[in-house]
Computed example of a mutant assay.
Amino acid sequence: MARSPAKPRPDDARLREDAQALHVALSALVRLYQFRDRDRICCHDISVTQCHALEVLVEQGAQRSQVLSAALRLDKSTTTRVVDALVRKGYVERTPDTEDRRAVSLRATAAGRRLYHRINDDLVEGQQALIADLPAETRRASIELIHRLARSAEARFVAGAACAPEACAPDDGTPSRCG
């Protein structure tokens, strides 16, 4: 016996409208931040991706390339190119892994840590100017909301809900663009 579709809850329409408004707001914010990050980070002679790699190594400590790849959500070959550039610039070094001498660990050099902190301080100053006119409770609530959204989005991404092939299929019947 076929089940009838569930009746929409009264708040489903409002939830959809709110989700659409959130999508628009986050898309605008992400676009602005991508340009801001590129413009402010690249003046330090590293790319945004290199800066993210440096951030992981400074904040989380030395680690193997596979762990860094997972943290950056990049494939191994792309991570290798990012790390190679940071090594050439003197911001990262490869050292024997403490647990397995056959393996290599990546770690930020003193110059890499200084660069990361200089970039981070610059970005934090920008954030400070952005939120300076908000009441303290609004700032804290906004920060908590963004953390919750990030955790929820990460959980969905890690669970494989980022893109189902049928969700990416164009309406014209051509094959899916993802996966």
Rank of each mutant, 00 (worst) to 15 (best):
V30D: 02
P170I: 05
Y116L: 03
R40K: 07
C42M: 15
I46F: 00
D97A: 05
S65C: 12
R9K: 12
V87G: 00
E99T: 13
H52K: 15
R14Q: 12
D12G: 01
P5K: 13
T98C: 09
L68P: 00
R73H: 10
A162C: 14
G61H: 05
D97N: 10
Q63G: 03
L123D: 14
S142G: 15
Y91K: 05
R140T: 12
R102P: 03
L22C: 10
A28H: 06
A129P: 07
D122Y: 07
V48E: 15
A129R: 11
E99Y: 14
D37I: 05
I46R: 04
D37T: 02
C163Y: 06
A62D: 06
L134P: 06
R88Q: 15
I131A: 09
D133V: 02
R40E: 00
L68Q: 02
A53S: 15
D171M: 08
P165F: 00
Q60V: 10
S142F: 06
E154A: 10
P8N: 01
M1F: 14
T95V: 11
C178P: 07
G126D: 15
A62P: 06
R101Q: 03
V24Q: 15
C51Q: 07
L149T: 06
L123F: 11
L130S: 01
A53Y: 04
C42L: 07
T80M: 06
S27W: 01
R156D: 13
A164K: 01
E154C: 10
R14K: 04
P135K: 03
A111H: 03
N120G: 01
R88Y: 10
C42K: 15
L130W: 15
T138S: 01
D97M: 06
A62T: 02
S152I: 08
A136Y: 02
C51Y: 14
R3E: 15
R31E: 08
V87I: 06
P165S: 09
L123I: 13
R101L: 07
T49F: 05
R156W: 09
S105E: 09
E166Y: 14
R40H: 07
A108C: 14
C178T: 02
I131V: 11
F157R: 00
G90P: 07
L74G: 10
D122G: 00
R114T: 08
G126K: 07
L130G: 01
L15F: 12
I119Q: 03
G90R: 12
C178I: 01
G61L: 07
D121I: 04
R81P: 04
V83H: 09
A2T: 14
R156Q: 07
E137D: 13
A85P: 02
D172L: 00
A167E: 04
I119C: 02
H44A: 12
L68T: 03
R81N: 15
T80P: 00
P165Y: 02
Q127F: 09
L86T: 04
T95W: 05
S142E: 09
K76F: 15
E93H: 04
R3K: 14
E17M: 13
L145Y: 14
S65K: 13
V87R: 05
D37K: 01
L134Q: 00
L134W: 03
S152N: 11
I46N: 08
I119K: 02
R113P: 00
M1H: 03
L68R: 05
E154W: 03
Q127V: 14
A136M: 04
A25P: 09
D84G: 02
P135C: 07
E59C: 12
A150Y: 08
S47A: 14
